[in-house]
Design a protein around this nucleic acid. Structure first.
Lengths: 190, 190
DNA sequence: CGATTTTTTGAATCATATCAACGTACGTGG
DNA sequence: CCACGTACGTTGATATGATTCAAAAAATCG
C-alpha cells in the first residue's frame, strides 16, 4: 500500500479498501538516482508516473540542440509523455530525475484494466487531465502576455521553494529563455 | 438526436441507442450569430460546448487591453473555459462566435449526472482532456522553439484552410504576435 | 454608398539572443 | 581529504527579431 498516492486520489474520489489494494498491487515502485533517465526518444512511454518523493523533468532537444523542458513533476504530481501514451507512438522526450526520487509507475495497460474495475479511477484521471490542461493553457497565457522578466518574477513569487530545488538553467529552459538572461535578471535584484 | 456529436463520440467509445438518446436529451442546441458572445468575464462557464458548425474563440483581455486568443473551436471540437468549470469560479474570458455557428451545450451539472449513467462518457471526456492537454503542451513547445516567423509558416502549412476562415489579427493573437508583424510576414511571401 | 473594420507600410525603439571568456562550485577518484 | 575535471553561473559586447506608434490604404458590411 502506498499512502501518498491513496491520499492524493482521496481528495477527488473515494475508493473502497479493496479498490485501494487492487490499485496498489498494480503500481510499480521505482527508486531512481539523480540524473537517472526513465524514458528516452524512440521508446514508448510505459505509463503514468506518480512522484512520491523527489523531482522529475520531461524535456526534449530542440533544433539548436538545447534542452527544452516541457514539465516538471514533484511530490504528488503525475508526469508522463501523454503524447506517446495517447497515440501509442515513440516518445520524442526524455524523462529524467532531477533529484534522487521515489516514483510509482502505473503501466498503461494496467491503467486501462483498472478503469474497468474502478470507475472512480477514470474520473480521477479525467480530473488530473483537466487540471493539467488548465495549467498548460495558463502557461500559454503567461508566455504571451508577460515579458520574460515578468514571467520570471511571477514564477519566483509563486514557487520560491521550488526555484531553490532545481539548477537555474533548468528554470530558464522551463520559462523559455537563456541561462545568461536568467543570470542578468537575478543580478538586477529588484 | 444530434448525429454529429454521436459520430464523434463513437470514434472513442460505443454507446447503446438508449444512452445516445439520454445524452442528446441533455444537450442544448444553440444557434449564434457572428460576434455573438456566449461567455463573459465574471460569469460562470455553464458547461462544455460542442461545435456542430461554425467557429468559436476563447480569449481574454491582457494588461495592454489587447485580445489574447487562448483557443479556437471549430466543427467537432469542444470548447469551454475549463478553469472556470474545474474550479467553479467566474471566468476571466470571453467565448465568442467568430462565424455564425450551431453549437451544443452540455451543462456542467448534467454532465456530472450523465457520467454516472454512462460511464463511457467519462472515458470519452478523459480522452478529450488528454488530447487537449497534449495539444497545449505541443503549442508550448512550438512557442519556445520556433521564431514567430517559423511558427507562422508552420501553422499555415498545417491549417491552410482554417487560416482563410478567420481574420488575420485573430491568427496573430493566437500565434502570439502583433497584426503588424503578421502583415510583414505575409508580405515577405517566401 | 458611407462607415466601420481590417490590413499595410515606415521609422524608431526595445527586449532578448548570441558569442565568447572568465569565475565558481561541486563530486569523484586517487 | 585534496586535486582535478566537469558542470554551472556570471559578465560584456554586439546583433537581431519583434514591438510600438502613427497613418494611410483596402476590404467588408449594413
Amino acid at each position: 500500500m502506498y499512502p501518498e498516492i491513496l491520499q492524493h486520489i482521496g481528495k477527488y474520489v473515494s475508493l473502497s479498501p479493496e479498490q485501494q489494494q487492487l490499485l496498489c498491487q498494480n503500481l510499480e515502485l521505482k527508486k531512481v538516482k539523480k540524473k537517472e533517465v526513465l524514458l528516452e526518444p524512440g521508446k514508448l512511454c510505459p505509463g503514468n508516473y506518480f512522484v512520491v518523493r523527489g523531482c522529475l523533468r520531461l524535456y526534449f532537444m530542440n533544433d539548436k540542440l538545447n534542452e527544452q523542458i516541457i514539465q516538471f513533476g514533484i511530490e504528488n504530481w503525475w508526469i508522463a509523455d501523454q503524447d506517446s501514451l495517447l497515440n501509442h507512438k515513440p516518445s520524442q522526450c526524455y524523462l529524467q530525475a532531477v533529484e534522487a526520487s521515489e516514483i510509482l509507475l502505473l503501466h498503461e495497460k494496467k491503467q486501462q484494466l483498472l478503469f474497468e474495475q474502478i470507475p472512480q479511477l477514470e474520473s480521477y484521471f479525467r480530473t488530473m487531465m483537466q487540471i493539467a490542461f488548465v495549467a498548460a493553457q495558463r502557461r500559454i497565457g503567461f508566455i504571451f502576455n508577460m515579458s520574460d522578466e515578468e514571467r520570471y518574477r511571477h514564477f519566483m513569487k509563486l514557487f520560491p521553494a521550488f526555484a531553490q530545488r532545481v539548477p537555474q538553467y533548468m528554470l530558464a529552459s522551463y520559462l523559455g529563455f537563456t541561462p545568461q538572461f536568467m543570470s542578468r535578471l537575478r543580478a538586477k535584484k529588484a
